[in-house]
Design a protein around this nucleic acid. Structure first.
Lengths: 183, 183
DNA sequence: CGCACCATGTAATGCGTTACATGATTTT
DNA sequence: AAAATCATGTAACGCATTACATGGTGCG
């Protein structure tokens, strides 16, 4: 539910749809992501439901900005959602793992190409969590000095992403060995 | 795309929608899952597209079974999909991590309840990968003796699920400490 | 007696993606 | 001169979930 992620960010302060997309890309993207178009349509629906309100800020030399503000109803919904315990596991959709599951009869080289392509992507992702994500949190901490208490949670979630990519990279490397061994 | 998972299983041999659901629940569920209703509707659409064909097997004392068989077109589609390298990371949606990201201002006890609820689920899931999933693979290896080559891939994907749950459990435990420390 | 299992499906709804549509400013 | 950034949105489509609908067999 993208709605709750947006409410979360709007609880930090007023923001535009464009800015929300940027913030997500710099923080929650490894456990929650969204396309720009979905953000706009969701915000519109949220305004209809009274969770947020928007004001147009006119700009010269730049397109106008529609700035969203969370309403008391929105704040309440967010808190209610945060407090509700999750009684199920998050659904997983891992394309690579699914492909590997059925790839036994495929020629070795094709499978290896598959694995190397993904290895590259996951290695880059790992570096991003180790470097840029750390800086993004520091930056956000400066931008929102009233949110010092949040920083430790941001750091903890970043760590989750880092660990995930670590085991992913390791696993792909093991898969490559496994394919190479079998001759 | 559930379609490809179904094609993959049907490449092992003819199966019903009900049986496909069971097989998925005992093998791919940690990286690909589906509801029974989606399986039925997807199979129907696949038949329309010529990827599978179905025959009704009548039974006494039991509801009739609709048995699906993969067609040559289906086999080709499956192989094509397997061979295509994935040039993007799989999209992730981690509800718990998202909640934690925004939970800094929530009262400690509520956050802890959240974490303990999920810890329990992930610990159970971990045990399942370590025990039942191992047996399920052995069982499948016996049921499909012609698929000996597949077994190592099944084992490797199971290992992925196990590792994932290991780091998840570890992370939740660290989160619990983090919340308890902050007073 | 109740629950789990076997077995199939449809309809409505919700969530998310892709493609379409526009256009100025700033950076490389 | 090209690419990235700023900035907003709509329409069509695809994928997945939830709820609805049915009913016999086997086990504890």
């Amino acid at each position: 539910m993208l709605k709750f992620a947006l409410l979360g960010f709007l609880s930090y302060g007023p923001m535009t749809g464009y800015e929300l997309k940027q913030r997500m890309d710099r923080s929650t993207t490894h456990f929650w992501h969204a396309k720009q178009s979905q953000i706009y349509t969701t915000l519109k629906a949220m305004e209809k439901d009274g969770l947020v309100e928007s004001v147009i800020r006119e700009q010269r030399e730049r397109p106008d900005r529609r700035v969203y503000v969370i309403t008391p109803v929105g704040t309440k919904e967010l808190q209610k959602w945060l407090a509700e315990p999750l009684t199920e596991l998050s659904p997983k959709k891992e394309h690579l793992v699914l492909k590997m599951f059925f790839s036994a009869h495929q020629d070795k080289q094709t499978t290896l190409t598959q694995l190397y392509t993904q290895l590259d992507l996951h290695q880059k992702q790992l570096v991003q969590y180790q470097q840029r994500a750390v800086k993004d949190i520091e930056q956000a901490a400066i931008e929102f000095p009233q949110l010092t208490g949040d920083v430790k949670m941001w750091k903890a979630t970043r760590k989750f992403g880092e660990r995930y990519e670590e085991i992913y990279v390791e696993w792909i490397e093991e898969m490559i060995s496994l394919i190479n061994e079998s001759s």
